[in-house]
Design a binder for these strands. Structure first.
Lengths: 224, 224
DNA sequence: CATCGTTTTGACCACGAGGTCAAACTCGAA
DNA sequence: TTCGAGTTTGACCTCGTGGTCAAAACGATG
């Protein structure tokens, strides 16, 4: 998808439309409005709530513009997801670059991970939806997952073997599962047997403490 | 839908006078064929693949029968999910009833849990779909989750406090996350950086070893 | 055979999805 | 003022969805 190529179409205005392609300007306010509307909608209602109609209406814009600017709904959503993942990766990457003992660094990563989840409450749901339903954007998820896995592996290299049940990839999967599933299950948990609101401050703090405890247990066991 | 339903009620009421009930016999072979077809379809293609048309076609039966026997697609799927959960709960309940030390019992539960997952490969996907997309059957999931949580809590009662970050419910959530997420992420993992087929025998055995290691680490840490 | 309740069918409906398109509009440059 | 590229609109298309319904087929019972 070369967007750079599409930029310089303007020069050949009156010449001829030989390669007569469209030149929608995605920096146009309307195009951005659509993007923002899609993002908001994604956060609020999840992937299901996304439809060309809904997004256009939300943006106060004609539905046709979705296709004029973004080609298809899939492409639009891909942009939104990309934004999301980029933000996640960025915040994680920073935490990975921290200093200190392994334990300190791991805890830092967890905190940042949890912070992101708490701030972007729809994130967990969106990722899980894509993953578990084999949505059209699994490729994106895979790429993202792959990159983050790389960071984890590097960080844990000093204590985990390269293969086998204690390989870093297993811990990455397990840890992210422990983190992410709380947020996807929270709405269900809340209405009933969890007691308090799982998204309440105390509940989140308690869960955070649990996750920290969990990795401490792992690190302690790994040191043998 | 509400208006349509109302219309229908009126029509029926005036036409038949009394509480016009249907008397579809759900033990009818066709009704069962529909149920089986839905189950197969659910396992193969997940919740998305389920549609009245698809199910009927699969069962070699007219689409109208779906509504004649089951009232609505939602009700049909509910039956299927109920079956699924019942099977899961049954197998788990048996394992919970085992004897031996706490550690032995926990490992037994995990093995049974993993066995079930390996046998019913669509299970993880289905549950996660329902949970993460707030599907129409979350209620079912909640009930199921609640029951299984009860078992875990009882089992862990001797080592975990009743509240706080080390409460049994946290471990339940974390453990089931570690177990279930492998199966939802496996398809993604496979195509790329996991190396071998995540559903292959060795990979599954390796993951199983990892999960066992994980809970051993937890139990060890809890014993202080 | 005739009857009557149950079962089965296929045509049909409304709706919302993604997507297309020609016509209308906008607005800067010639 | 005219032109034309880029933009915007609304009508329209196809498809698949859940769901309805009248009529036909079936099956036991009188």
């Amino acid at each position: 998808m070369g967007e750079a190529a599409a930029k310089q179409e303007k020069a050949r205005g009156s010449a001829e439309g030989k390669a007569g392609e469209r030149t929608p300007d995605r920096s146009n306010p309307r195009a951005q409005a659509l993007l923002d509307a899609a993002e908001a909608l994604l956060a609020e209602t999840g992937y299901e709530g996304l439809s060309a109609r809904a997004v256009a209406e939300r943006a106060g814009v004609n539905k046709g513009l979705v296709f004029y600017y973004w080609g298809s709904t899939a492409e639009l959503f891909e942009q939104v997801l990309e934004r999301y993942y980029a933000a996640h990766k960025a915040s994680l990457a920073e935490s990975f670059a921290g200093e200190g003992s392994l334990r300190e660094r791991v805890h830092e990563v967890i905190d940042v991970y949890l912070d992101f989840m708490e701030t972007h409450r729809a994130y967990a749901r969106i990722v899980q939806q894509q993953v578990s339903s084999g949505g059209p954007h699994v490729g994106l998820v895979r790429r993202h997952l792959s990159e983050v896995l790389g960071m984890t592996t590097a960080m844990l290299a000093e204590v985990t073997p390269e293969s086998g049940p204690l390989a870093a990839r297993h811990f990455h999967l397990s840890l992210s599962a422990v983190v992410i599933n709380y947020f996807t299950y929270a709405p269900i948990l809340g209405e009933g047997f969890w007691g308090t609101d799982p998204f309440g401050e105390e509940a989140l703090a308690e869960r955070r403490a649990h996750v920290h405890w969990v990795v401490d247990a792992w690190l302690a066991a790994l040191e043998r």
